[in-house]
Design a protein around this nucleic acid. Structure first.
Lengths: 236, 236
DNA sequence: TGGTGTGAATACTTTCACAGCC
DNA sequence: GGCTGTGAAAGTATTCACACCA
């Protein structure tokens, strides 16, 4: 296993493990079993043990995993034992919301450059960062050594922005634009696409507005014996 | 699998097909081949034909697909030949951005109820909708017959909000909170999680100069096989 | 005893490759 | 000739089930 490739689907689960582990640590748990983790995440214990096994033997038989040590291991695997600078492109409604989001820093990311096209946005200041014109992307990204970009521009501008980011040295793109980016194979892209997520859920909803006569009422529902919907999806 | 016949992974691709098809129609294309669609989406032609084959025979041999007809077929499959009402819970930074997003309506969704906890938000008006207290969720969602909810509250409030939405009749949840929701099996959940997306990409980024001394390095990982945005490059 | 790590089995997804039809 | 739809094959991912160990 050591020399083999790690499936991307495994990599995408690691941040979810970290999220739960941080919560457990906050709540004072010292150890955790694969069974408990599975419960919290709506996965199976075997899957969690298998996932960890790609990277090492983090557990102790008859005991489980030490929360603290496991966090350190997984953060090292994901290269989260440092802070990553991020370039944000787009400063409309969405871009501004992203620029002001307080969740990046505690999770290892820091927006250190912001770019916009519209003259009304350029020169504004967000969290102490001056919004620069998009023509500066390549130069600034290169000078700051930024490897991660967030695209929050309209769909028809996304490809061009991606190319500028990549020209400046970006290797990972978080794409909020509803467009498929065409990038070279050394660049990774993840999509944030709420419209697609909604549109894929309506498949499972009956067309009619009325609640079926035999529908399940909430009193019948067992929220603790979780069979979370997480299992039927990957990422959004 | 909720549906029993069609894999969820296929369902999640259908909105992407629709997105490209709408663009093609806007640009005046009358027909399209699986090969072209594959190119635009970074998938393979065989995969696209296979996906469509779960729902019918939409193409014409030697010819391809009629863009217009294919859009209608896929929208019918996804139950997008109507408008879906959506309840939004949370009216902080994120909730407000969602409430004002103009992309829902042209894609079949309309926010018709908004709920918040904080007294400073309750009573505000967004797009003509009064922000109601979260205690009203169950009653209002039931009275309006809403089946889709968007959760944009802090992680530690998300489970309770989900339960209220479900109690009111919601069957599909778009969850922006960084928390795993535990829901009964007749409810579907999709996650919007930019932090996890970022954290899973850093795995593939070398830490500055250094290559991990042991463990799996990014070169061992076959992400071309897992990442659509990357694979297209090889195909084209 | 309780829980890990992992071969083997199973389940799922994608791709190949080609018959068939326009 | 060109392109779909689909059996069959190949490739991935998950789950089972148990040896083994603290």
């Amino acid at each position: 296993m050591r020399n083999g490739a790690v499936p991307d689907v495994v990599i995408r689960r690691l941040p979810l493990y970290l999220r739960v582990l941080h919560r457990l640590r906050r709540e004072g748990h010292r150890t955790v079993s694969s069974e408990e983790l599975a419960h919290y995440l709506g996965l199976t214990a075997a899957q969690i043990r298998r996932d960890f096994s790609y990277f090492g033997r983090f557990g102790k038989q008859g005991y489980g995993y030490e929360v603290d040590a496991l966090i350190r291991e997984l953060e090292a695997v994901l290269h989260l034992d440092r802070t990553w600078d991020v370039a944000l492109v787009g400063y409309g409604h969405l871009g501004q919301a992203i620029a002001h989001y307080r969740g990046f820093v505690p999770n290892g990311f820091r927006i250190t450059a912001i770019f916009a096209k519209s003259p009304e946005h350029i020169g504004q200041i967000a969290n102490g960062i001056v919004v620069l014109p998009e023509t500066e992307i390549e130069r600034v990204v290169r000078e700051l050594g930024i490897r991660i970009g967030i695209i929050a521009v309209p769909a028809d501008a996304a490809q061009e922005v991606a190319e500028r980011l990549i020209a400046g040295g970006v290797r990972a793109i978080l794409n909020y634009a509803p467009a498929t980016l065409h990038v070279p194979s050394h660049v990774i892209v993840r999509e944030i696409d709420p419209i697609s997520a909604l549109q894929s859920m309506t498949f499972y909803l009956p067309r009619m507005d009325e609640v079926p006569a035999n529908g399940v009422s909430h009193e019948d529902v067992d929220f603790t014996a979780a069979l979370p919907a997480v299992r039927r999806q990957a990422t959004s």
